[in-house]
Simulated scan of single mutants.
Amino acid sequence: MSVTGSTLSRRALGRELRRLRTAKGMTQAEAARAGETSPQSIGRIEEGQSTRVTKMMVNALCDAFDATNAERRTLLGLVSEVRAAREHGGGWWRAYADADLPSGFDHYLALEEAASRLTAWKVTVVPGLLQTPEYRRALAWSEIPELSPEVIEGRIELAARRQTRLEDPELSVDVLLSEAAVRDRVGGPGVTADQLRHIVAASERPNVSVRVVPFSAPRHLGALVGSFILLDFAELPQSKLTEPSIVYVEEYAGDLYLEREEEVDRYRNALREIDRVALDHHMSRDLILAVAKEYGE
Score class of each variant (00 low, 15 high):
60 A>W: 01
144 I>R: 15
234 A>V: 06
70 A>K: 13
148 S>F: 02
243 E>N: 15
115 A>P: 07
90 G>P: 13
146 E>V: 12
171 L>M: 11
202 A>I: 00
47 E>I: 02
120 A>I: 14
29 A>S: 13
164 T>L: 15
135 Y>D: 02
190 G>F: 05
65 F>N: 00
72 R>A: 06
295 Y>I: 06
255 D>L: 00
105 F>W: 15
215 F>R: 12
21 R>F: 01
100 D>E: 08
202 A>K: 04
149 P>Y: 08
186 V>N: 02
199 I>T: 12
183 R>T: 04
204 E>G: 05
91 G>T: 11
182 V>G: 06
97 A>G: 11
258 L>A: 06
148 S>M: 04
213 V>N: 00
99 A>D: 05
108 Y>H: 15
195 Q>P: 03
23 A>P: 01
103 S>L: 13
263 E>L: 05
61 L>R: 06
198 H>V: 02
87 E>S: 14
45 I>C: 03
76 L>H: 08
110 A>Y: 00
184 D>I: 06
93 W>R: 10
38 S>F: 06
246 I>M: 09
52 R>A: 13
144 I>E: 10
287 L>F: 05
102 P>G: 05
107 H>K: 08
20 L>P: 08
256 L>F: 07
157 E>C: 07
208 V>K: 07
1 M>D: 10
53 V>W: 03
133 P>G: 08
99 A>Q: 05
140 A>R: 01
260 R>I: 09
1 M>L: 12
248 Y>D: 01
106 D>P: 08
132 T>R: 07
51 T>I: 09
146 E>H: 13
199 I>D: 07
61 L>S: 09
205 R>V: 05
67 A>Q: 00
97 A>S: 13
275 D>S: 15
5 G>Q: 10
139 L>D: 02
269 N>E: 11
285 R>D: 02
233 F>Q: 02
136 R>H: 12
178 S>G: 10
89 G>N: 13
102 P>A: 13
206 P>A: 02
288 I>R: 06
289 L>Q: 09
175 V>W: 00
70 A>W: 04
143 E>Y: 12
4 T>D: 13
27 T>W: 05
